[in-house]
Amino acid sequence: MSTDTNTPEPASKVELPEHLAGGEGEIPSFDCTIRIARFDPEVDEAPHWEDYQVTMYGTDRVLDALHKIKWEIDGSLSFRRSCAHGVCGSDAMRINGRNRLACKTLLKDLDTNKPITVEAIKGLPLEKDLIVDMEPFFQSYREVMPFLITSGHEPTRERLQSAEQREIFDDTTKCILCASCTSSCPVFWTDGQYFGPAAIVNAHRFIFDSRDEGGDMRLEILNDKEGVWRCRTTFNCTEACPRGIEVTKAIAEVKQAILQRAF
């Protein structure tokens, strides 16, 4: 515990007390400018940039900078975050023009000499500051039926699967539904009717699952005008995925599955 009882408890790890932060392994600190696209629907017509000067440490992430701004400079800043450790998928945002999770992007990996731009993910209706309406995204997700579909009697034991069978769709089980991929897709930006990479990834997870029997239905759904054929293989989704899922490859596999089913 802290020996100095007069100073209030720091709001976050950002402000480590001197005796903890100092010493031989001192974490280098630096000043940087965070440029955030602010949008208040009650006042603003369109988002506008606002700069915030903060002193951050080498171990800090973009999320820590946002926390510092919200807690110390401007409490009206709105953004989503839950676990803050890259698992829940709440804090996807456009950092320096690329879709990233704020909680997985270290400030030291960005160019701190220039302002770091942070804006809401594109293609989804903006609600406030960095918060977008995720409903169109989840609507597409629901449409591909992301749950196990089986027929017949309930099993009396586990549905067994070999390691090889599991390996086929292992990559697409990693999705955390942060919408980084879908909101990085240029086809989705201009016409939000496209199912989007995330929905296809989650369909892939069940289509190639040996225990599932709904693959045919899902392939039929994704054979739609707004389905996999709208993918232009620009690889934005693969580049954006914070979980390292090979999204474009998964989409290509679904395309192949539809073709094999047709011929």
């Binding site: 169109p136 939000g192 039929e220």
Partner: peptide
């Protein structure tokens, strides 16, 4: 980008 997708046409054109 409001959600207004048409019902699947079951067309194989694409």
């Amino acid at each position: 980008t409001g959600y207004s997708r048409h019902k699947s046409s079951r067309s194989k054109f694409e």
